[in-house]
Amino acid sequence: MNEEEEKYDLKIILLGSSKVGKTTLVNRLTQGTFENPEQTTGATFSKKKYQGELQEYTFSIWDTAGEERFDSLSSFYCRNSGCELILYDITDRNSFTNLDRFFDKLQYTNEDSFVILIGTKLDLIEETSKLRKVTLEEGKKKANDKNSYFFEISSKTGHNIQELWETVGDLFEKNSQKNEIKHRQDNNHFQINSFTNNQKKKNCC
């Protein structure tokens, strides 16, 4: 109806302890910039387009506060999320050991959502690997245990950022194809139900 009224094809939510680089990653993704942002209070969201194989999609990216006391809020923001980026700082051991608190949030997200575990601040260990507190293997293992995808990135240098974004888009497209097939099957068997579902969607949006 109106250009301001936009529908988002995918809701991405960023989770992780305080100061692991959630807002920085959002800024890198949406503006291509790198700076030291203020701590996030509540949540903010931004949008980014993704050029798929056949069409262009718009994703919303939700940035949350890492503060543990505001935990109940991030559960709220996780509702309807289709992709979770869970971040830790590879130079901050605590941010890694704390990860389970964010994997617990997955119960609030969409059933078919996918998770990407991300180790951040890769640039800090370029000169000296002394600063690294979480090894690449540990990260991979954690991702494997939690059935999620894995990246180590640097929002400062842009390392792996493009790859990360492509992966998000790919997984989204695969997911929606799957859904479409499922949807079609459902349609053949239960025409009425799918009608109802559509109606419901219309009502709540």
Binding site: S18, K19, N36, P37, E38, Q39, N94
Partner: peptide, 13 residues
């Protein structure tokens, strides 16, 4: 202490 320092370094800079 770490938490405070993290936030002090990014408040009203």
């Amino acid at each position: 202490k770490t938490q405070i320092e993290k936030d002090v370094y990014r408040t009203d800079r």
